[in-house]
């Protein structure tokens, strides 16, 4: 039983990482109807920036904050330079552009930092604490706490600030938002910036355990896709819940369904993704838009 709880906690920790990245996908999809296939690579890129800063002697938390700022500016810049020109193009064109971005950023990282695996420091101690007989790693707890703090801040931003309100409004009704004085096209860029920040957080949280290399996020992004789709691609709450659920589920499968082995974690996630899409094409937390053919 105690092992079960440990598995749950560490599942929640990795689920938190999926949730952050899934939320980043949802933020962008809500406002631009685009799935950003490059989200994972952008997160890895941000993590490399943090690594460089720390490698040059900066201490962890200043490097963390500076990385978030750089990621934000980078996200805004990507939207302005790469996505803006195809804003009105068919969805598939934009998808292709984000795939181009994925390949480009991935290659650029290997070019700039070499494809070799790097170790990334963790701000949390590697000890475990004892909670009623259950040993819980502070690492997992730290990651989970970090995720919760991020999500709370984001929630407060969207709920209580004027810009947050404008972001939500621009996503649901761009035309009316413009009539209310909102510069909608900048809101889209802002959304990309925020998503890039979220991605950076998830990258820096996962890097200590998965090690830093250009393909670090390739599998994680699939989990994030699955989480986002699981919760409904337009539902922020759904993305978070979906991420946590998926994290716990995968962890339990890894621990108790040994015949599947570690290789099948990803296919299992894929199967969940497909199954959900087939049963509820709009995800668990969204009302389906009926399409009859």
């Amino acid at each position: 039983m105690t092992e079960f709880f440990q598995q749950i906690v560490s599942g929640l920790a990795s689920g938190g990482v999926y949730a952050s990245l899934a939320l980043a996908l949802v933020l962008i999809h809500r406002s631009t109807q685009v799935i950003n296939f490059a989200q994972g690579e952008m997160a890895t890129f941000a993590t490399y920036i943090a690594w460089t800063l720390i490698d040059r002697g900066m201490s962890y938390w200043p490097a963390f904050v500076l990385t978030l700022l750089v990621a934000f500016v980078g996200g805004v810049a990507v939207e302005r330079v790469v996505i803006r020109p195809v804003e009105r193009a068919p969805v598939l064109t934009v998808v292709m552009v984000t795939i181009g971005l994925l390949v480009l950023v991935n290659g650029a990282m290997a070019w700039l930092w070499s494809p070799e695996v790097k170790s990334f420091p963790s701000p949390f101690p590697s000890r475990a604490i004892d909670v009623g007989g259950v040993a819980i790693s502070l690492q997992d707890l730290g990651i989970l706490g970090m995720t919760l703090v991020t999500l709370t801040l984001l929630y407060l931003f969207f709920r209580f600030t004027k810009v947050g309100l404008a972001l939500r409004a621009a996503a649901v009704n761009p035309e009316s938002s413009r009539l209310a004085g909102v510069r909608v096209s900048w809101m889209l860029a802002l959304g990309w910036g925020l998503a890039a920040m979220l991605g950076a957080v998830s990258g820096m949280m996962i890097a200590p355990t998965s090690f830093l290399e250009p393909n670090m996020m390739q599998v994680i992004i699939i989990y994030a896709f699955a989480a986002a789709v699981l919760g409904g691609i337009n539902s922020p709450v759904g993305a978070v819940v979906g991420g946590l659920l998926l994290g716990v589920a995968l962890n339990l499968i890894g621990a108790y369904a040994e015949f599947l082995g570690p290789e099948l974690r990803l296919p299992v996630a894929l199967a969940i993704l497909l199954a959900v899409l087939l049963v509820r094409p709009a995800g668990l937390f969204e009302r389906a838009v009926v399409k009859r053919v």
Binding site: R168, A169, V172, S176, L179
Partner: peptide, 21 residues
């Protein structure tokens, strides 16, 4: 505008806040 331009998914109060943007 025609069709009232309501932000259908936002709360009534947030709609008013949008007016003050």
């Amino acid at each position: 505008p025609e069709g009232r331009g309501t932000f259908a998914e936002l709360s009534v109060w947030d709609n008013l806040r949008m007016g003050a943007f």
